[in-house]
């Protein structure tokens, strides 16, 4: 089983559009995992039908029992996150600032601070129209711990793939290089980088690629909107060559990306004659890349 993680560093370069089209081309050989749990959009293309749904709990938040509290203020003294506040002689916890470390709860002389486990989101197993399965999630409003939810989505995708004999997992990742991205790289076999010839995207590509090297992952790249800037495109190509990153394709600056999204379909469905052969070729090359 091979896990292919789609990343870009910069947002809006086309990760989800590529993931959607690859899902269609890969059909019943690949389980799809949406690991951009913060702002998940792949379901808007793949229209999954949920077959299983589960609440996801992770992390804790402190809560003061006002009946027991003696107003000694020890909790305020030890909290490093500014989460303990005082209003009208009563201490209380700001749940947005609380990190759930439990220090206040531990030192409270009256035992009046409890720690409650947080429901941070929902996890779904779904059917998609390719006949395959999709594992996805939604992070609760203002919830923390997206890295742990990403890890859970991946774990479920791996189990699903193993149980049903799928050869591949296609993972749509988050922008950035922080905890959800690190979580999505862990245990992956290949990283597919989506970039565009802009100064910003190239800067971000270099950072996310360097991060992926910490995991010793082979990488491939799709240059989207490739005709937007010839000079930066050439710079990207040099960067790919120098670092032995497989240049899988260059896609044009084309409003079909937005039109397909607006119709809620993948590019290969929106205009099959224009996009199918291109994504089939990408998938063929991707699925033949050697094991790490």
């Amino acid at each position: 089983m091979r896990e292919i993680v789609i990343l870009s560093g910069k947002g809006g370069t086309g990760k989800t559009s590529v993931a959607g089209s690859l899902a269609l081309v890969a059909g019943k050989t690949a389980v799809i995992a949406d690991c951009d749990v913060d702002a998940a959009d792949l379901h808007l293309i793949l229209k999954p039908e949920r077959v299983k749904e589960e609440d996801f709990y992770s992390g804790y938040i402190a809560e003061i029992d006002f009946q027991k509290c003696s107003n000694c203020g020890r909790c305020l003294e030890v909290c490093r996150f500014g989460a303990v506040q005082k209003k009208k002689d009563q201490y209380y916890i700001d749940p947005v600032k609380c990190e759930g470390c439990g220090y206040c709860s531990y030192i409270c002389p009256r035992g009046s601070i409890g720690m409650s486990e947080q429901k941070v989101g929902k996890l779904y197993h779904s059917h998609i129209r390719t006949g395959s399965l999709m594992i996805h999630a939604s992070l609760g409003i203002g919830a923390d711990n997206s890295g742990k939810l990403v890890a859970r989505v991946k774990k479920d995708a791996q189990t699903t793939a193993e149980q049903n004999g799928y050869k591949y997992i296609i993972v749509d990742g988050s922008p950035g290089i922080g905890c959800p991205v690190i979580s999505s790289l862990s245990g992956a076999d290949f990283v597919l980088l989506i970039t565009e010839p802009t100064r910003s995207a190239l800067h971000d590509l270099k950072r996310v690629w360097e991060l992926s090297q910490r995991f010793h992952l082979p990488a491939g790249c799709i240059i989207n909107k490739a005709d937007l800037n010839a000079e930066i495109r050439a710079e990207i190509e040099v960067f790919l060559q120098r670092n032995k990153i497989l240049h899988l394709a260059s896609l044009p600056y084309d409003n079909d990306f937005q039109r397909a999204i607006t119709e809620g379909v993948s590019l290969v469905e929106y205009n099959s004659s224009k996009w199918s052969s291109c994504f089939q070729a990408i998938w063929q090359e991707l699925s033949q890349t050697k094991e790490n």
């Binding site: 913060d38 702002a39 992070l139 203002g142 919830a143 997206s146 922080g178």
Partner: peptide
């Protein structure tokens, strides 16, 4: 600000 809806963007917007 950072993209997304979780801790980094909440820290900034808050």
């Amino acid at each position: 600000s950072p993209p997304g809806t979780s801790c980094p963007v909440i820290t900034v917007t808050n």
